[in-house]
Amino acid sequence: MNIHVEVRDIEKQVLDPAEALNFVEAPGHGAGVLFLGAVRNRNQGRDVQGVSYDVFAPLAAQSFAEICTEAQEKWGQDLRLYVAHAQGRLAVGGLSIVIAAGSPHRDEAFRACRYVIEEIKTRAPVWKQEHYTDGDSEWVQGHALCQHGDQSHVHG
């Protein structure tokens, strides 16, 4: 299998970029691209202390797999892809998502990695609650889903 997708309870095990890169390596692959999403200390003018990620895990894993399959259809079946998304609370700097793409040449790997993160942001059932330094918390407004998981541009 050349796709790995996962929703990980990060209170048990943090996300691991090395694991992602190892997965996408192959003898015929000359390129490996890694994307890391991390919690920022500031968003929309507010000081952020941490973020909690809520995930509908079975559907999220399925949406990751669908998106990776689409990337392979676009950029080649020999593309290897790794996606792991955090579930739980992270402090500033904590990794929320790790994506890696491996392919024979760099163009496919860069494009596929970018495609996977952009599609996940608008299609995967994941929700972010920001915790601010003043003690307040808020669910971040996001992208409304369409029936087939495409973004509708209604919100966010």
């Binding site: 559907l59 993160i117 996940i120 942001k121 929700w127 998981g149």
Partner: peptide, 25 residues
Amino acid sequence: RTVLAEDAPLDADSILAILPPVSGG
């Protein structure tokens, strides 16, 4: 398994989820 259409029929004892606008990544 999937996001459902508004006219999708339901089985007895269905377990659904309501998905507000998403903000992962």
